[in-house]
Structure formats: structure tokens, C-alpha cells
Design a protein around this nucleic acid. Sequence first.
DNA 1: GTCTATAGACAGATAGAC
DNA 2: GTCTATCTGTCTATAGAC
Lengths: 190, 190
Amino acid sequence: MKSKGEEQKGRIVEAANDLFYRRGVGRTSFADIAEASGIQKGNFYFYFKTKEELLLAVLQRRHDFFARLLSEWETALAEPKDRLHRMVDIPLRDRDDVIRYGCPLGSISAELGKSLPVSKSQTQPQATFRLILDWMEKQFTALGRKEDAAFLSRRLLSHMQGASLLGHAFEDDVWIIEETEDLHHFIDTL
Amino acid sequence: MKSKGEEQKGRIVEAANDLFYRRGVGRTSFADIAEASGIQKGNFYFYFKTKEELLLAVLQRRHDFFARLLSEWETALAEPKDRLHRMVDIPLRDRDDVIRYGCPLGSISAELGKSLPVSKSQTQPQATFRLILDWMEKQFTALGRKEDAAFLSRRLLSHMQGASLLGHAFEDDVWIIEETEDLHHFIDTL
DNA sequence: GTCTATAGACAGATAGAC
DNA sequence: GTCTATCTGTCTATAGAC
């Protein structure tokens, strides 16, 4: 049973997550989040001392989302190839959002990378990318490609990120559709 | 002979270009640009009515830079393959900056794509990407790949963008070194 | 009475416009 | 260099549950 506080905290994080994605962290104010969540901004400090603390909660949420997703695929799908196919399909399935706002991981990583004083929130997207890379390496290793598993994982992830960035820049899903097709073919011919 | 006004305007654009790249547009204030350029911010309004107008001048500068570069390569290098090799070498040559601040085109495109009211500055990075894509297609066509020139160009550019984004995210040039090598091989086997 | 949670006003700093 | 708006961050009075 969740306490009322936990529930309210969750609503703030949810609203912030959505606004950070659509408008960017820098262009989202507490007033915006207050309006979207229906919670007065005076309350925010009861739950989060600074904006960065709230940002960290949002990034943790995205990290947990991926951790759960990857874990689910490992139990639901027996074949490593099927898991990888499922992975490269993410931008395609979410293409409407990717076209409009970019990749939720890549775009926030790019935004946070610009701030000069290196803070904890800056290394969080890195950790989530790392989680995905390690998972990919595991699948490639299971396919007998232990030696170049790291290389293949980097290739897959950079492909996906490049396609998402350009699909967003041009607001054209041809980038995502084509690259996804190419990646499926890449996995099949391993 | 440049007038003093033109020179001052150029200095403002130059300082803004640098700061927009390193800190991001949103985190760069007029005060920062004033300090970097040595020009009082009170004067800015004489040259640029709004921050967006200054941003447009910066984006135009980057566009002109690429237009000149691509044009130079067409006269200096006879072989289309050599031109393409030169192109994919850009992130590698600039890798120190790319690792620290990302791709000057990709990162600003990602940042501007987050603002909601669609403004003119948002479509400018798109135009520069378009310039590069058209140039690539021209080279592929000269190599007898007219049919899939657009496809190959998208592939090349998304590869480069993905590698730059992740090299920046991880602050590790392995992404750029590896992907560049791969792209050289890709061009050689055309 | 005490703890959790809420609401609104307000300070200080800083932004861009002029 | 001034003006005004807006931002993050703080303070305090208080409501309700138990």
C-alpha cells in the first residue's frame, strides 16, 4: 500500500519525465510541472530539494524502465536473435514520439552533456546506455560472437541513435524505418 | 574592406558560435557572450533584435562553413571516393571537441528540436544536413549508385551522427575511431 | 500533540529586451 | 545600464490523520 506522499511524489516524477522529454530539462520550470501534475510547486521542496534531485529521479525512472524491459525479454524470448530484433524495433514502435522529440535517452544525454560543472545527473544517461550495451553484448556472446561482442553492440546502438537523431531533425520516419530494416538484416546474417 | 560595424557583428557571432557549441544555446546568456567577445551587451541590440536572430546568424555561419568545405573538396579532390573518405573523417579529425561537446550540427539540432513553437531557427540545422546529404548523393551517383544514392547517404550520415552522440555521451573516442574505420571500409567496397 | 503534507507568498539572482 | 519577467529556492502558517 502506497502512502499518499509516495503517490504524490510519483505524480511529480511522471509529469516531469513527460515535460523533460517533450520540452527539454532546461525549458521546463517548476511552474510547468506544477500545472501538469496539479500539485503546487511550494510542495516540490518537500519531496525534492533541488531541480537536479528531481532530474535524477526522472533519469532513474527511465533506467528502471529499460532494466525491467530487458529482463522481461530474457525470460519471454528464448532466442538471443529474437531479443536483438526486439531491441532494434524500439525506435520503430515509438516512431511518432521519436520523430517529434527524439530518443528519450539520446536527447537528454545530449542536453546534459552541455552543462559545464560535471554533476551526478550527467553520468546517469551513460549508465543506462551501459546497461543496454552490456545486455547486447550478452546476446552476441550467446550467438558465439564473444570476440567482437563489444564492437557489434556499439555498432547497433550508434546506428539506432543516429537514425533517431536524424529522424527527429527532419521529422521524417524514413530514417527510422530504413535503418531498422537494415538492422534486422544485420542480425539475421550473423 | 570591412566596416567597423561588420567586424563587431562578426566578433559577436564568433563568440556566440563558440559558446552555443560548448554550453548549449539555452545556457548561454548575453552576459556570457559580452564577456567572451569584449563587446558590451547593450550594443547587441543594435546588431540583433532578439536572441533568435543571433542564433540564426550562428547557424548560417555553420551552414556557410560546410558549403565552402564541400565545394573546396569538389575542386581539390578528383575522385568521389576520396571526397567521401574526407567527409567521414570529419568527426575523427575533430574528435577532441566531439568527445567534449558533441557534433556541432547534431547537438544543436537536438537542442532546438525541443522548443515547442516552431521557429525559423529550428529548420536551419535541417537545411545544413540537407546540404550534406545532397552532396553525398552526388558523390554516390558519380560512383554509379544513382538508384540507392539517397539510401547510402542516409546510412553514412546516421552512422556519423550516432557515433558522435555516443562518443560524447561516454566521453570515449573509441566510438568515433571504430565507426570511422568502418565507414572507410564501407566506401572502399562500393 | 505530533507527523505528514499542503499552499501560497516571497527573496535573490539572472535572463532577455530595449 | 535599466526594466520587467521569470527562474530556482526558501519560509511559514496550517490542515488533517492518528
